[in-house]
Deep mutational scan, measured.
Amino acid sequence: MPEGSASLQLAVGDRVVYPNQGVCRVSAIDVKEVAGQKLTFVTMRREEDGAVVMVPEGKVLAIGVRKVASAE
Rank of each mutant, 00 (worst) to 15 (best):
M1K: 13
M1S: 13
M1F: 11
G4E: 12
G4I: 12
S5E: 11
S5I: 12
S5A: 12
A6W: 08
S7I: 13
S7G: 13
S7P: 12
S7L: 12
S7M: 11
L8A: 08
Q9R: 13
Q9V: 11
Q9E: 10
L10T: 01
L10D: 00
V12G: 00
D14W: 01
D14Y: 01
D14I: 03
D14A: 03
D14H: 02
D14M: 07
D14N: 02
R15S: 05
R15G: 01
R15N: 03
V17Q: 07
Y18K: 04
Y18S: 05
P19S: 07
N20Q: 09
N20F: 08
Q21A: 09
Q21Y: 15
G22Y: 03
V23L: 11
C24I: 01
V26K: 00
V26E: 00
V26N: 00
A28L: 05
A28E: 06
I29H: 01
I29Q: 00
I29D: 00
I29N: 00
D30A: 09
D30W: 14
V31Y: 08
V31P: 02
E33I: 14
E33R: 06
V34D: 04
A35K: 10
A35F: 09
G36C: 00
K38A: 06
K38R: 09
L39S: 05
T40C: 01
T40A: 07
F41L: 09
F41Q: 03
V42G: 00
V42F: 06
V42Y: 10
V42T: 00
M44N: 00
R45W: 12
R45P: 01
R45Q: 14
R46T: 03
R46L: 03
R46K: 05
R46I: 03
E47R: 01
E48W: 14
E48C: 06
D49S: 03
A51S: 09
A51I: 09
V52R: 05
V53C: 05
V53Q: 03
V55C: 05
V55H: 04
V55N: 03
P56R: 06
P56C: 07
P56W: 14
P56Y: 08
E57H: 10
K59E: 15
K59H: 14
V60R: 04
V60Y: 10
V60C: 05
A62L: 10
I63S: 13
I63V: 13
G64C: 09
R66H: 13
R66W: 05
R66V: 15
R66N: 08
K67R: 09
K67N: 05
K67W: 06
V68G: 06
A69F: 05
A69P: 11
A69N: 12
S70M: 10
S70A: 11
S70G: 12
A71C: 08
A71V: 12
A71T: 11
E72C: 08
